Amino acid sequence: METKRTNKEVLIQGLKKMGLSLLCMFLGPTLIYIAFSNQEKPLYIPILIIGCLICGLAIFFAFKGLKTILDSMFNN
């Protein structure tokens, strides 16, 4: 009978994705705040779009990271 163990390589990949998600969670709202505080500048729209895309990436990487971490614990 084999004991189930956590796959450490997959767990590290999941933690890296979660770290990237955390970085995006701070960077995205910061860019959105900067864009809204400088609405008269010509780069208002591009910075706002980039901020929204980074917020979307934060959600994407959070889900991928959680799935990877759970796969490392429960898959063979």
Rank of each mutant, 00 (worst) to 15 (best):
I45M: 14
L43S: 15
N76R: 05
L66C: 07
F63I: 04
E40F: 15
G14T: 03
M25V: 02
L70P: 00
I45P: 10
L48G: 13
C24A: 06
I49S: 12
T3G: 12
I47W: 12
Y33E: 11
G14L: 02
E40A: 15
L31V: 07
K17E: 15
C52S: 15
T6K: 10
D71N: 03
N7D: 13
F36D: 10
M73A: 12
D71L: 03
E2N: 06
L22R: 04
I34Q: 13
G65D: 00
L48F: 11
E40M: 12
F36A: 10
C55E: 05
E9K: 05
P42G: 15
K67V: 10
E2P: 14
Q39P: 13
T6H: 11
I54T: 03
L70N: 04
E2T: 09
T30D: 09
S21D: 00
P29G: 07
L53C: 15
N7Q: 07
R5D: 15
T6R: 13
F61V: 05
L57V: 08
N75I: 09
G56W: 05
P46F: 13
L70D: 06
G19I: 02
K8I: 11
Q13W: 08
A58H: 01
C24W: 02
I47R: 04
G28R: 02
G65H: 00
C52H: 04
C52G: 12
I34L: 12
I32D: 13
G51M: 08
Y33K: 07
P42K: 05
L48S: 12
F60Q: 03
F74Y: 02
E40S: 15
C55H: 04
N75E: 08
I49R: 06
L43M: 11
G28T: 00
K8L: 14
G51Y: 04
E2Q: 09
I47N: 09
K16A: 14
T68Q: 01
K8N: 13
G14S: 01
I47P: 05
E9N: 13
K17C: 13
K41P: 13
A35G: 10
L23A: 14
K16Q: 01
P46K: 07
M18P: 01
Y44W: 15
M1H: 11
Y33H: 08
Q13L: 15
L27I: 02
G14A: 06
L27G: 04
